[in-house]
Design a protein around this nucleic acid. Sequence first.
DNA 1: GGTATACTTGATACAAAATATCAGTAAAGG
DNA 2: CCTTTACTGATATTTTGTATCAAGTATACC
Lengths: 146, 146
Amino acid sequence: MDRKAEKILNRIVQNGYRRTNARQAIVTALVNSAGHITADDLADNVREKEPHIGRMTVYRTLELLCELGVVRPIFQGTGAAHYILMDNGGHHHLICNRCHNVMEFEECSAAMVMEKVAKQFNFHISSHLLELHGLCEECNEISSHQ
Amino acid sequence: MDRKAEKILNRIVQNGYRRTNARQAIVTALVNSAGHITADDLADNVREKEPHIGRMTVYRTLELLCELGVVRPIFQGTGAAHYILMDNGGHHHLICNRCHNVMEFEECSAAMVMEKVAKQFNFHISSHLLELHGLCEECNEISSHQ
DNA sequence: GGTATACTTGATACAAAATATCAGTAAAGG
DNA sequence: CCTTTACTGATATTTTGTATCAAGTATACC
C-alpha cells in the first residue's frame, strides 16, 4: 500500500468515516493516477482490479475527499471535472487559453505570500492552487504571426 | 453600457469575432453578476431582458470568453460550473473546506512570483487564479473544540 | 444604402455527467 | 458472534452540456 494512500485513509478514519475496501481501492487508484483524473476514468481504473465497485461509490468517495480537502475538482479544457490531489501542499499550473495545455511548475516563494494572507484572515491553509492563465510559447508565436 | 463590458466586447472584435446583440447582452449580464455565476443562471438573467436569446448561445459565448481568457470555469461547492471573470487581472480566493465559504482577498506581491515563472517558461500570462484551501477562522475553532 | 458572404443564432434533439433512491452488505464496537 | 449503523451498488432520474441545421444578422464591398 502506498504511503500517500495510507495517509489519506487515515484522514478518513480520523474524521469518523469508515475504512472500507472500496475506499481503499479508490484512494489507491487516485494516488496512482498522478493526481489528475476524471471521476469516470478513476472508476474505470478502479474496476480493472475490482470490477464489482460501482461508479456511484467513486463519485461519493471523491465528494468525501473534497470535504476533507484532499482533492479539488477543476475544469481542464472541456468535458468532465478533473480531480487534483491537494494533499501534498499545492499545485501550480500554467494553463494555455488556446491549446488548453497544462504545465506544472514548482514555486516556493509563493509561500511567503500565503503566510501573510493566512495571518491576516486567521485562516488555516492546508493546500493551495495557483493557476496562471495566458498563452504558452507556441501559441503566442502563432498569435503574433497572424 | 458598462466600461468593463465594453472592454470585453472590444476584445471579442479584436480577435475577429462579431459584435452581436446576443453577445452584448450576455457580456453585460455577466459583468453585472459580479463575476460569479453558473451558465444557466446567466441565461436566466439575460432572458429577463431579452427573452429571445437561447440557452445555447449563452453556453457558446462563455466558451468563447474562456478561449479569450476573459472567464474561467470553476467548481464552487456542488453542481454546475461557476464562471469567474478574469479580465481584471486575477482572482484570489480563500476557500473553506468545511463550510465552502469563499472569501476574496487582494494580494499583489504574488506578482513577483508570476513574473519569474513567466520568464522561465516564456509564457504570456493574461490572468491568474490563486486559491488557498483550508479552514476559516470559525470552522477551525469548531474543529479544535471536538 | 444595397448586396453577398460568412459568421452567428436558437429550436430541437441528443449525449454526458452527476445525483437520488433503496434494498442489500460490511465495518466497528461491544 | 451479534447488533447497529454507515456504506455500497444497480437502477432510474435529473441536471448539465453538446451537436445539428435551417434561419437570421453583422460585416465588407460595391
